[in-house]
Design a protein around this nucleic acid. Structure first.
Lengths: 202, 202
DNA sequence: ATTAGGTTTAACCATATAGTTTAACCAAAC
DNA sequence: GTTTGGTTAAACTATATGGTTAAACCTAAT
């Protein structure tokens, strides 16, 4: 009772994340999660009654991770240029360390689009709020020729896609693992400039 | 023997695409494909011996579709600005009509990165060639401050991500299906300008 | 009319998998 | 030392699923 009450639950959750993130709901076996957590299947069902329960916990966490991290960078009160720089740097950094999460979320959402709405309520920050923060700092910076929603999506695209498509892009450009990481590192520096250029009038 | 020799095979392949694209390998049932094709399971295995065979055919086709379509637009000899305009317009249009393909490819590749190399040989055009064509037209347009690979990835990101993340972005911005499509339509016009701005020196 | 090949039906096999159950174990709390 | 609750082991259930098989059917070509 004192031993490992919520520690085991945590262990299970970590193991479940590792497997679910890589293999998705359908590709994941409860036995594999149990093995990864170093426990047996019975205990797995003792904590999370069903596969769906466990999956929902994992999915919700992933969703929260992605959005709360985005909030930290976009939600700040910095002026636009700094905000973009921070967002791109920190967010890409976060994505690199959690490279399976965006693909996991996107593919699960495509397979079950209705599920989003439920999960959205569990996220502490409303994404629309992020857009409003971005819109305000664009107004402050006198950027008027670009729809803030477009900018939001463009920045997100250029941060997330290279992570999601990494295995593909590596092959296309003949990058080794190390070369690709260096390439991304270079991007972190150049992307803010690319974007500021794009939205600033000549 | 005359009746429907390759017509049935085609029917199966179409049905398989429909299911595989939406549900991925693990989420797909052979029975469901048979139902979708209006035939029975026995005939399915008569044409494609195994699930893996059928999947490979579908995956290879998806891969070809994505890259040959990209080739049509990026591989042209138009000057940079026109090339970008065409690419963005036509490629996004293609993606809209085949909105499950990019997500399908990305998630399957993440789950089985080794498989890419095999599939790559089946693609009629080497993707590196696309990059070279882009690099050449950038040189012609005197764009020197941007790595062609970055531009390639940025354009691809901004074309593909909004399609892959559509269910998510719809919820974030409170878009109806129709509103989202109109939003994408607007993007088609504005994206080329956004990108030309980004890479042109002030 | 016979043949051949696509097609159906339906039963069948082997295996995998989510989830359950039961008995036993063990360590800490009482 | 007894109780309690987390934990294990192992067997088990029910079901789903990929794949096979065999017999019969139907239609067009011969």
């Amino acid at each position: 009772m004192v031993n490992t009450p919520h520690c085991t639950e945590e262990k299970i959750l970590e193991a479940a994340k590792k497997i679910f993130h890589r293999k998705g709901y359908d590709g994941t076996r409860m036995q594999e999660i149990a093995d990864e957590a170093g426990i047996n299947k019975a205990l797995l069902h003792y904590y999370f009654r069903t596969k769906e329960n466990l999956f929902n916990a994992v999915f919700q966490d992933a969703f929260k991770d992605i959005f709360s991290r985005l909030f930290l960078t976009v939600g700040s009160d910095d002026p636009l240029e700094e905000k973009l720089g921070k967002m791109i740097n920190e967010y890409i950094g976060f994505l690199q360390k959690n490279s399976f999460i965006p693909g996991f979320i996107l593919s699960e959402i495509n397979q079950n689009p209705d599920k989003i709405i439920d999960v959205f309520h569990s996220v502490p920050v409303q994404p629309l709020f992020l857009y409003e923060k971005l819109r305000d700092s664009m107004r402050d910076a006198r950027i008027e020729n670009v729809d803030p929603r477009d900018l939001f999506i463009n920045v997100l695209s250029m941060c997330i896609f290279p992570v999601v498509a990494k295995p593909l892009l590596k092959v296309i450009f003949n990058f080794s693992e190390k070369e690709y990481d260096e390439f991304i590192e270079k991007r972190k520096k150049e992307l803010p400039e690319f974007i500021m250029n794009a939205i600033t009038k000549k």
